Simulated assay, not measured.
Amino acid sequence: MAWTVLVVSGLLEAAWAIALDRSAGFSRPLPTVIFGVALTLSMLGLGYSLRTIPVGTGYAVWVGIGAVGTAVVGMVALGENASLLRILCLLLVVGGVVGLKYAH
């Protein structure tokens, strides 16, 4: 259960990062609310997960999922550069996250 919550929390990290960007410095109400809700739920889920998953592993997985998710949304939906090198680097992060799961 802790791993499922951790993965969802990582996805929520990506959601709050994108909402933060879209909030335009907290001047747009809907993205600002989405940011606050996603941030809160993401942190609660991370905290819950760290009850049973070691902090180094849990935090690295959470950040990795959030970083990759944010970068993918940026490339797919926000027009950011999707170069082959960038995609390969993101795959390395995914490999590291998967490795940490199995090393646990």
Rank of each mutant, 00 (worst) to 15 (best):
W3K: 04
W3T: 06
V5P: 08
V5R: 07
V7I: 15
V8R: 03
S9D: 03
S9K: 03
S9I: 01
S9M: 04
G10W: 08
L11Q: 05
L11R: 07
L12I: 11
E13N: 15
E13G: 15
A14L: 09
A14T: 13
A15W: 00
W16I: 12
W16T: 12
W16F: 15
A17W: 03
A19H: 11
L20T: 10
L20G: 09
D21T: 13
R22F: 10
S23E: 06
G25F: 01
G25P: 04
R28D: 09
L30G: 07
L30A: 14
P31Y: 07
P31H: 08
P31T: 09
T32K: 05
T32D: 03
I34E: 08
I34Q: 06
F35S: 06
F35K: 08
V37D: 03
V37T: 08
T40G: 14
T40K: 02
Y48V: 10
L50E: 05
T52W: 12
T52K: 15
V55Y: 10
G56I: 00
T57M: 10
G58M: 09
V61T: 07
V61F: 02
W62F: 14
W62T: 10
G64N: 05
I65P: 11
I65T: 12
I65N: 11
A67G: 06
V68C: 05
G69W: 09
G69S: 14
T70F: 11
T70G: 13
T70M: 13
A71Q: 07
V72D: 01
V72R: 03
V73H: 06
V76D: 01
V76Q: 10
L78W: 06
E80N: 12
E80R: 11
N81W: 01
N81V: 07
A82S: 13
S83D: 03
S83C: 02
L84A: 13
L84D: 00
R86F: 00
I87R: 05
L88Q: 05
L90D: 03
L92R: 07
V93W: 04
V94S: 06
G95T: 14
G96R: 07
G96P: 11
V97Y: 08
V97L: 13
V98D: 03
K101G: 08
Y102N: 07
Y102F: 15
H104W: 04
